[in-house]
Amino acid sequence: MPREAFERFRALVLREPELQARLRDVQDPAAFLELVVRLGGERGCHFTSEEVRAVWQEARRTWFERWP
């Protein structure tokens, strides 16, 4: 399940400041998605950039729906 793979990667990133440091200052969306997919794959978490983009869009939607 790709979503499950991304969630495993997300949990890994949240536990590893070094991994965060590689990802957090990338502003270009395409470069960021490519890096997330690559770093995920290197750790056995296989998902596509489209799947990550969908998670991102969902996060944006939730954020604005919950706007105080």
């Binding site: 949240l14 965060q20 990802l23 502003q27 997330v36 998670v55 996060a59």
Partner: peptide, 28 residues
């Protein structure tokens, strides 16, 4: 994740929005 970002924008939320320009902050 705000790192060293100081709260210098007119409102707290402006500072957060600034960090949200980075995709990382949406996903993690």
């Amino acid at each position: 994740h705000l790192g060293g970002q100081r709260f210098t924008e007119p409102f707290f939320d402006d500072t957060i929005q600034r960090r949200l320009r980075y995709p990382f902050n949406w996903l993690f």
